[in-house]
Each structure stands twice: as C-alpha cells, then as structure tokens.
Nucleic acid binder design. Structure first.
Length: 562
RNA sequence: GUCCUCGUAGUUCAAUGGAUAGAACGAGGGACUUCUAAUCCCUAAAUCUAGGUUCGAUUCCUAGCGAGGGCACCA
C-alpha cells in the first residue's frame, strides 16, 4: 500500500470516529520542499463541521497518526492555517534511489495503458508547402505525446496525415501551368521552394484577378475526377515533397511513423460516409452544398460543410472518411488523438459531434490537442504571403550557435534547444518567434538539461574507474531537494500522459536538474582524499536515469559528453 | 455580431482550490588551482478590472477590458 493510501485510511478512520460521514482525504506535494513531502488539508476542510479550530483538529490528526507509527513517516508538522505536513523517512529516500537504479531506463514507465490502443495523428505537413516552424510544433508535441503513451503501456499508432489533397492543389496546378516549368522544377536543388514561390505568386495574382480562385477550384474538381494532366502534376508534387519530409524527419530525429496516408488515400472512402450521413438524416443540401447541421441550442456549433456546390469534397468529409477507415482498421475501441493547431478547435468539436451522431466514435474516444501558433511580434506567419521561417533555417542557425560551444554535439544541442523551447510551455499558447529565445543555450533550456546529464555521466565514469559500485547505501544524513524530487518522476509521467501535456515533464526536469546542479556545486561527490561516496554516486546515478528517461520522452538526445 | 482560447515580474514561461505566487532571460552584485562555470550563490521585480462562491481564489462562476483565433464552398 502506498504511503498516501496508508495515511488516508488512518485519517478517514479518525474522522469517521469524530462523526464525519464519508470523509474525503487528499494529499499533495507542497509547493515548497521545506513544507514536507506530502501535505493534507483535511483539518481546514472539516474544522467548520466539527466546530474546531483547524490547527487544533490538525494536532488531533497528527497525534492519531503518530500512535499508529507508520514506518515511512519520520516527522509530522502542523503549519500555516492548518496544513498537516508529512516528512518521509531517510530509509524511504534510500530505498527509492535503489529502486530507480534497479529500474533503469524503465523507471517511470507504467502499465496504465495496457491493452488500450491509441492513434496519434500529428505533424501532417502539406505537400508542396514549406515545412515551417508551424509544422514543427505538431511534430514535436505529437512525438512527445506518443512517446508518453507508449511509456505508459499503450499500443500507439503514429499517424502522419499528409495534406495531399484539396483545392490548394487546384491552385498550384494553375500556377504551374501559368508561370512554372515542370521540368525545371524537377531538376531543381530546392524543388519545394520553387513550388512554394508559385503558390505565393498565385495568391498575389489572385488579389488582382479573382477569377483565378475559380480556376483553382475547377482544377481541383478535375483532379478529383481523375483528369490525367492534373494527376501527373499532382504526383510530381507528392513525390518531391515526400523526399523532403523524409530528410526533415531524419534531421529532427523523431520516431518513425507507423502509417502516413495522405488525404487522397480516402478519396474512394468518402462515398460510404455520405451514405452513413444520409442514413442518419443529420445533413441536408443548402445552396447546392451539402452540410451537417447540429443542434444549435445544445452544441453552439455552426453547420459543417462536407461537399461543395460543384460536388467536390471538403476537408471535413475526408476527415470523417479517415476516421471511419481507422475504426474499421484498428477496431472500435481505439482512441484517436489529433495534434493540430488550436485554430481548428471548433472544427474538431464539429467532427467529434458528427462522429458521435454517425456512431463512429463516442466523444470520449476523440481528443484534440490544440497548439498555439508560432507568430511574429508583428503578426501571423502565412505561407500564402510568403513570410514564413523554414525549419532548415532554424536548424542551421541553431547548429551554428551550438557549434560555437562544442562541435561534436552541436546537432544534439541544436535539437534540444529547439524542442525544449516548444515543450516547456503549455501547448495551447502561442509562441512569439524570437531567435534568441528559441536558440538560447542557457537557463531553462534543453541544452542545460543535457549538460546536467553529461555531468552525471562524467561522475559515474569516475566511479567506474575507481571500481566503486554506484549503489545507494544508508549513509544519508538528511534528504535534500534532489532526493525529494527524483522519486516523483513516475507521478509526473502519469500526469503528463493523462493530460497529454509534455510540459509537465519539461518543467519537472528543469527543477530536478537545477536541484542537482546546486547539489553538485555545493557538495563534493568525491572527497578531498579522492574517495567516492557510494551514496552520492548512487544519487547521481538516479538523477542521470531520470534525466535520460525524461529527455527521451521529449524526443531530446542525451549525449554523454559535452 | 457570436463562439472558443489566452491575460502572472521589464521579457519568456510555471504553479492538481492552499502556505511567503516558482523559475529563466534581462538588470545589479558575488563564486572558477572545477568530480565538466553550457554552472552556482545573493539582490530588486508580477497575478488585467469589478463582483460572487469558499475556511482559503492566479486557479471556479458572472460581468467588463485587452490580445489571438473560428464562424458556408481553405486546410
């Protein structure tokens, strides 16, 4: 039985004795370590009902617990308005270090997701468009979320939902035909940039000549109807883009996708959705287009358009087809997570509502992780306007800055800087693009964590040379902040996973690394006579394991030397 | 207009309804004959406004203000 459950049982026993029916008792880690390892607010919660001063009640609870002598509790303090603070025993911390070392790279993992399937759709770049900082967010966050789920025992399907279909291709085809050179693009060193230039030109020209938009839509309709000219151009774009994506994913060192089906894959699967929709009677025609109408009172959702007045498909119809396909392929019990920009949150509520109405998935099996956008201080980035930042440029710049410090690990450091800058904050928030912020190597950053990890490795190397087994012993005088933080890693993992929020891992790792750096600066792990303290080596080993496991979950490499 | 999200030190971010709101960057001061200074220590510095719920509100509710986003043929 866990310590908190043990304490809970004891406290409930007392409160029941005092006349409280079904008391609820909860524990938390106090914000500050000096307030103890666990704390409960029961005395404040029930003081009024029992007509007692909360501090007096707290004292009663304290005495009651002390009479039972729970062995992992070393001390109990009453503090503030009536908090009961628990301090864990030295033995607990020593045992937890041993446990961490024993578990190694499995420490923090759990089986909460055993037997459960989850599909995570993320990255999802668009064919013939730049892979920019925008896609970077989905890729990094999605990868981290998938890592977390896998670490918690879920069967995870990593799904890259490529944007290879839609009116944008009609527009691109128009641009290639009007201003482009098919053969020249194919031979170009940077074919994607050429295509993007054409796409930008299209929108410039369309401002002057609105008929271009209609022309673009018409070409998409032809593409969808199988026009051979349109198909050939489209296939060229897909092939060129796929090469580009493979190169970028390798550079980002994200886990491989299990499946990468383009939207076009669902082309022949949309009719079935329309049949389902018609059977449920939730959609109707309006001005030639076909839309699902939701209960406005209840859902506050606007209608969702499935097909245009010319009969061609829209994003929503293709998404429904994709989820229908996933249901058939992976089973009705799968949970589907879409890591897509927050600007689509209303759209996803529409999709979830529709899928529930259609009987595809209950809302409980559909999750949208929305992320804010990278934006400039002056405004939004836009592919159409051409004011974007290419991912390659960021990686190049990051490697340049990291290389000034250490040539050997510069790609590792560059990735850490970029990924951590993204993962340390709540996904939903926008990020104002700032070179100095993103590529910072000091402070609360990925490189700082890597450095802390490398220092641990260095100490352990020394320990190995001296033939001292890095095992914790019971020479601990008093538990410090490092001990009080390392054992909590599994709780953090659990929370980050259930809330799909990798930033909990990020902020925790910073806290731990900072505690360790302070410890490192203040303590001689090797004493002046060059004797290694087995306990300190064991502690270092535990910290190293947690940093490594945590950074791996975030998709950040952990070089051993820096 | 309507719906959604976000408002925390100068800046960028934290804070399962708890205690003295925690970091980092920047500013000022200090620590390198180092188990790796990509580090550590000290100082100054913040919850948009007004109500409400609560023993207790940055957190929940209502209204307002501010920023961003969605709302019929983009994805």
């Amino acid at each position: 039985m866990s310590i908190t459950n043990q304490l809970k049982t004891i406290i409930i026993e007392l409160l029941t004795e005092l006349g409280i029916e079904n008391p609820s008792v909860s524990f938390e880690h106090p914000t500050e370590l000096v307030h103890g390892d666990y704390s409960t607010n029961v005395a404040m919660v029930y003081a009024k009902e029992l007509k007692k001063n909360p501090r007096v009640l707290a004292e009663e609870v304290k005495k009651y617990i002390q009479n039972q002598k729970p062995d992992t509790i070393e001390n109990i303090e009453i503090a503030g308005p009536g908090f009961i603070n628990f301090f864990l025993s030295k033995q607990f911390f020593v045992d937890s270090l041993k446990h961490i070392i024993r578990e190694g790279d499995q420490f923090g993992s759990n089986q909460d997701g055993a037997g459960k399937k989850v599909l995570v759709e993320y990255s999802s770049p668009n064919i013939a468009k730049p892979f920019t900082v925008g896609h970077l967010r989905s890729t990094i966050i999605g990868d981290a979320v998938a890592n977390l789920l896998a670490f918690s025992g879920y069967t995870v399907i990593r799904d890259n939902h490529l944007g290879d279909w839609g009116t944008q291709f009609g527009k691109l085809i128009v641009a290639i035909k009007k201003w482009g050179d098919f053969e020249a693009i194919k031979k170009s060193q940077t074919p994607i940039k050429e295509l993007v230039d054409l796409y930008v030109k299209f929108h410039d020209e369309a401002e002057k000549d609105a008929s271009l938009e209609d022309e673009g839509r018409a070409w998409f309709t032809k593409l969808e109807q199988g026009d051979s000219d349109a198909r050939a151009l489209w296939q060229m774009c897909v092939a060129l883009s796929m090469q580009e994506f493979d190169r970028i994913y390798a550079r980002l060192r994200v886990s491989a996708f299990d499946t990468a089906l383009g939207e076009s894959f669902f082309e022949d699967k949309m009719a079935a959705v329309l049949v389902d929709v018609k059977a449920t009677n939730i959609a109707k025609e309006s001005e030639g287009a076909y839309l699902i109408f939701f209960d406005e009172e209840k859902t506050k959702l606007p209608p969702l358009m499935l097909t245009k007045k010319d009969g061609s498909s829209l994003y929503a119809l293709r998404d429904l087809a994709a989820d229908r396909y996933r249901r058939e392929t992976y089973g009705t019990d799968i949970t589907i997570i879409n890591e897509v920009g927050a600007e689509q949150s209303q759209y996803f509520r529409q999709i979830f509502e529709a899928e529930e109405l259609l009987g595809y998935f209950p809302k409980s099996q559909r999750v949208h992780i929305g992320h804010g956008l990278y934006r400039f201080a002056e405004g939004k980035m836009s592919t159409r306007k051409g004011n974007v930042i290419w991912l390659d440029d960021i990686l190049n710049e990051a490697e340049k800055r990291a290389g000034e410090l250490n040539e050997a690990t510069k790609t590792d450091v560059a990735l850490a800087a970029i990924k951590f800058n993204d993962l340390k904050r709540e996904a939903i928030k926008d990020i104002v693009f700032d070179w100095d912020e993103i590529l910072n190597l000091h402070g609360d950053t990925g490189p700082y964590l890597q450095y802390a990890h490398a220092r641990c490795v260095s100490v352990l190397e020394k320990a190995r040379e001296s033939l001292i087994e890095p095992v914790a012993t019971d020479t601990l005088q008093q538990a410090g902040s490092v001990e009080k933080l390392v054992y909590r890693f599994p709780e953090i993992v659990s929370r980050a996973t259930s809330e799909y929020a990798p930033h909990y891992i990020a902020t925790y790792l910073i806290e731990l690394a900072h505690a360790f750096s302070t410890y490192y600066a203040e303590t001689k792990i090797v004493d002046p006579e060059d004797h290694l303290s087995p306990y300190k080596v064991g502690l270092t080993k535990a910290v190293k394991i947690v940093l490594k496991n945590g950074l791996s979950l975030l998709g950040i490499p952990t070089p051993e030397k820096m």
